[in-house]
């Protein structure tokens, strides 16, 4: 069975079909929740941001233009919420402690893999807010440089450069921690 596209779901939502929002939620909840978690490091905040994302998708669905791709529109809402979060909380520097509970419940890890993941997340927490946002937009949400540049209000070239720099910094942080 062909999956209903995001564009069709948003168009239906725009016309009043609230249940389309449920379909979008099921589709994106895990991705967005982890996006927020890896940027904020805060479990409760990530849950709140997840709810707020879909509240806003519902609220602003009337402004969605069907000729535009849905995914960048939806991702922009999620990305703007992280900016709002940092403005309000003013926690734009490295996190004092990255919430590593996000890894606790996964029983499929081998010990060395689990250790590597913990180190990665810990190093991620040492990036500043913008670096964490950009890096997660790139690898987790798999946003294009055009989408990242639109969200961050920078040129496409600078989006490339900032992604590279964030990765290089992350690599350096990992090296310094012995990985």
């Amino acid at each position: 069975m062909t999956e209903i596209t995001d564009e069709i779901l948003l168009d239906r939502l725009k016309k009043g079909d609230v249940h389309s929002l449920g379909v979008l939620y099921e589709r994106y909840k895990t991705l967005f929740f982890n996006f927020f978690l890896r940027i904020t490091g805060d479990y409760d905040a990530s849950n709140d941001l997840l709810m707020e994302t879909f509240d806003r998708i519902y609220k602003y669905s009337s402004s969605y233009k069907p000729i535009k791709k849905a995914r960048p529109w939806i991702y922009q809402i999620a990305s703007n919420l992280t900016k709002d979060y940092f403005k309000k909380s003013k926690r734009t520097k490295a996190l004092e402690e990255m919430n590593l509970e996000i890894l606790d419940d996964n029983h499929e890890f081998l010990d060395d893999g689990e250790y590597r993941n913990r180190q990665l997340m810990s190093a991620m927490g040492q990036l500043n807010a913008r670096e964490r946002s950009i890096i997660n937009m790139y690898y987790l949400l798999e946003m294009s440089y055009e989408e990242i540049s639109g969200n961050e209000n920078i040129s496409v070239n600078n989006a490339r450069i900032l992604v590279c720099r964030a990765l290089k910094k992350l690599k350096k942080l990992l090296k310094n921690s012995g990985i």
Partner: peptide, 21 residues
Amino acid sequence: LLSDLKDIPLKKVETNIDEEF
């Protein structure tokens, strides 16, 4: 590094959050 980042498993959303939604 990118490959390792992509391999980090995604945490599931808790059922109470689903209920809230």
